[in-house]
Computed example of a mutant assay.
Amino acid sequence: MIIFINRYGAEIIQRATEHLYLVTVAIFIAISVGIPLGILVTRKPKLNKPILGFANIMQTIPSLALFGLLLPVSGIDKSTAIIALTLYSLLPIIRNTYTGIVGVDPAITEAGRGMGMTDMQLLWQVEIPLALGVILAGVRVATVIAIGLATIAAAIGAGGLGVFIFRGVATVNNQLLLAGAIPAALMALAADFGLGWVEWHLSKTTLKTINED
């Protein structure tokens, strides 16, 4: 183990950093696109099927096939991996944003309208704060999915921990497989735990605010 760490330790850190970069950028873009789309669907119900349908279709395409389909468009680069990860991350974010806002108690929204709040004020001051826990749950699921799928980015030269996995498969070397799989699993667990804690904290804070009001 010591010999292995001495030999591959620096590269594991490098690949983990690349992996984290791909996931972070993809999730940031997915949040920036997914949450507004989820809000749009709550205001324009007719867009529900096309928007959620598109996100669903992206989820059904095999990951390696999606990477391959994007290659003629964006080339063999990190951008291809980021686009693919973003597309895969959209569904849970859009769906949870929609579900969270629609699930707000109608009595609360009616009370807000009775106080003279505009639709935008109602959205930002009432609906989004109350739906934040559900929205964050979608981000949590999307992040874990993206961390797992990012290992395939190595197939198109985008780096990441998948480099070790593909190298281990090619050489039938279990140590290399574990060098990629274990850090990726730990990264996913850390993200799930961290975002889960934030989700729990926000839900607790929101309930406390409602009870005080």
Rank of each mutant, 00 (worst) to 15 (best):
I3S: 14
F4N: 09
I5T: 12
I5N: 13
G9N: 02
G9A: 02
A16P: 09
A16L: 09
A16T: 08
E18L: 08
H19M: 12
L20F: 13
T24G: 08
A26M: 05
I27C: 06
S32F: 13
G38E: 00
L40P: 06
V41S: 08
T42N: 09
K44V: 12
N48S: 15
P50K: 02
I51L: 02
F54N: 13
A55D: 07
A55E: 03
I57S: 04
I57V: 13
I57D: 05
Q59M: 08
T60L: 00
T60G: 07
I61W: 02
I61E: 01
P62K: 09
S63G: 11
S63N: 07
A65D: 11
F67A: 00
L69T: 00
L69M: 03
L70M: 06
L71M: 08
K78E: 09
S79F: 07
A81E: 02
I82F: 05
I83W: 10
A84F: 06
L85A: 03
T86Q: 03
N96G: 03
T97Q: 05
T99H: 15
G100D: 08
G100V: 07
V104S: 04
V104N: 00
P106M: 04
A107G: 12
G112R: 09
G112Y: 12
G116N: 12
M117N: 02
L122N: 06
L122M: 10
L123H: 01
W124H: 15
Q125A: 06
Q125L: 11
Q125D: 14
V126K: 01
E127Q: 03
I128D: 00
I128N: 03
P129W: 06
A131N: 01
G133E: 06
L136T: 10
L136W: 09
A137T: 12
R140L: 05
T143I: 04
T143W: 09
V144C: 13
A150R: 00
A153W: 02
A154H: 08
A154Q: 01
A155E: 13
I156F: 00
A158V: 14
A158E: 06
G162S: 10
F164G: 00
F164P: 00
R167Y: 03
R167A: 13
G168C: 10
G168P: 06
T171I: 14
T171V: 15
T171P: 07
V172K: 15
V172T: 15
N173K: 10
N173R: 11
L177C: 13
A179K: 01
A181T: 10
I182N: 11
I182M: 04
A184S: 13
L186H: 14
L186I: 06
A188M: 10
A190V: 12
A191S: 11
D192L: 07
F193C: 14
L195K: 04
V198I: 05
E199H: 07
W200F: 15
S203H: 12
K204T: 15
T205M: 11
L207E: 03
L207Y: 12
K208T: 11
I210S: 07
E212M: 15
E212W: 15
